[in-house]
């Protein structure tokens, strides 16, 4: 089993949070992971790109130029990584910030998520990332909802623990969207 993904957007969209949830949940299932965030100067511009690789074997490269999945939370990230997404790979995109005509590939599995609207509907605009995470969980077979539920408490900072039920609600909503998409 091998699965690599790039998650991209701008700072504050919660990309580090959802990629950490994927990484920690995978570790708890006994899988190997690598988690490579952008750092330093790259971070200063406000961009966040994270590459996560999950495998049941030792992982070699922590970088990829043909990921199995791309989660694009904004247009800049989508434009940058869309060309390298693996054929038949999964593209999950934030359709609140990315117009449909930005999608140029027709050889991939496209999941459109109005994640900002969905988050507001649940009660907090900050849950957009968790809706997106839910759509990803709906598309992969190595992690299930329960795997996220089991580890969410150790990833979310202590002062945000009271938001966990809403976060999980958002993940569930994302999974529904994934199923219907």
């Amino acid at each position: 089993m091998y699965y690599d993904m790039i998650m991209t957007g701008f700072g504050g969209q919660g990309i580090q949070m959802i990629s950490q949830l994927v990484a920690v949940a995978s570790i708890r299932k006994g899988l190997n992971i690598t988690y490579l965030p952008s750092y330093g100067v790259e971070k200063r511009g406000g961009r966040t790109n994270v590459t996560v690789v999950v495998s049941d074997e030792d992982i070699g490269s922590p970088i990829t130029n043909m990921p199995c999945a791309l989660i694009a939370m904004d247009r800049i990230g989508l434009d940058f990584y869309q060309p390298v997404l693996k054929s038949a790979g999964v593209l999950i995109y934030n359709s609140n910030l990315i117009p449909p005509d930005a999608i140029e590939r027709n050889d991939i599995d496209i999941v459109k998520v109005n994640c900002n609207d969905e988050a507001v509907a649940i009660g907090n605009a900050k849950l957009a990332n968790m809706v997106t995470l839910g759509t990803l969980i709906g598309r992969i077979d190595f992690l299930k909802y329960e795997d996220i539920e089991n580890i969410i408490e150790e990833v979310i900072p202590e002062h945000h623990r009271k938001t966990i039920p809403d976060n999980l609600k958002a993940v569930k909503r994302g999974m529904e969207i994934s199923k219907n998409n």
Binding site: N32, I33, L36, P37
Partner: peptide, 10 residues
């Protein structure tokens, strides 16, 4: 190299 310093694993 900076990659080994900055990336994360179990």
């Amino acid at each position: 190299d900076a990659m080994i310093g900055q990336f994360q694993e179990a």
